[in-house]
Amino acid sequence: MATAGPSSSSSHSESSNNASGGAEGGEDEAPDNSNFECNICLDTAKDAVISMCGHLFCWPCLHQWLETRPNNQTCPVCKAAISRDKVIPLYGRGSGNQQDPRDKLPPRPPGQRTEPEPQNSFMPGFGFGDGGGFQFHFGIGAFPFGIFTTFNNWGGGAAVPPEMERELPQLLQYILLIMAFFFYWNLFFG
C-alpha cells in the first residue's frame, strides 16, 4: 500500500518492506527493529514521520488516522494534539531521495470520503448496497441523530464523520424516517 518511490526502495531492497506489496511468509525486520515500528501498522515505519510528542509512524498510516478524525487529531499513542504540519519526516541514510513523505502520499484507499460535494459522498456510507447491513437501534440518543448512527457502516465506502451527520439535509432525514417506518412495518406486518 505504502508506495515508496522506486528510487527510495532500491537502496535497501533485500532487507525489508517490499513485503508490503503482498508477499507472505518470510518476514522482514530483525528483532532489534521493534523500536522503529510504526505505532499503527506495527511494521517497520515506512516514509517515517515523528510527532512532536516523539511517537513514530509511517506517514501513510498517520495520514489515514488524521483523516479518520479531522476535527480531533490526536496522537494514537499518547493523545497529544497532532497535525500534519507538526510532524517531522525522518530521513535515514538509506532513504535515497529525501523527498518529504508528506508530499508523496499514496492515493487514499477507495471509499474514503473526499472533501466537498456532500451529495455524493455520504450516501455509500450508510451501507445500503453491501448486503445484510441496515439495522436500526432506537431508544438511545436523540431520535434524528440516533438514526444515523445505527446504519450499518461496515464495509461500505465512506465513513460519515460526526460533523456531517449534523448537517444532513432535511430531505434526507425524512427519507430515512420513512424507510425506518417501512422497516418496522415489515417487522410487524410483513
Partner: peptide, 24 residues
C-alpha cells in the same frame, strides 16, 4: 511480534479475506 516475525512463521491460511489491504 518482532520475535515472531524474525522466525518468519507469520503466515495466514486465511490470507485473502475481507482485508484488501495487506498492511492490516
Amino acid at each position: 511480534a518482532a520475535a515472531a516475525a524474525a522466525k518468519g512463521n507469520v503466515t495466514s491460511p486465511a490470507g485473502k479475506h475481507f482485508l484488501d489491504n495487506t498492511r492490516w
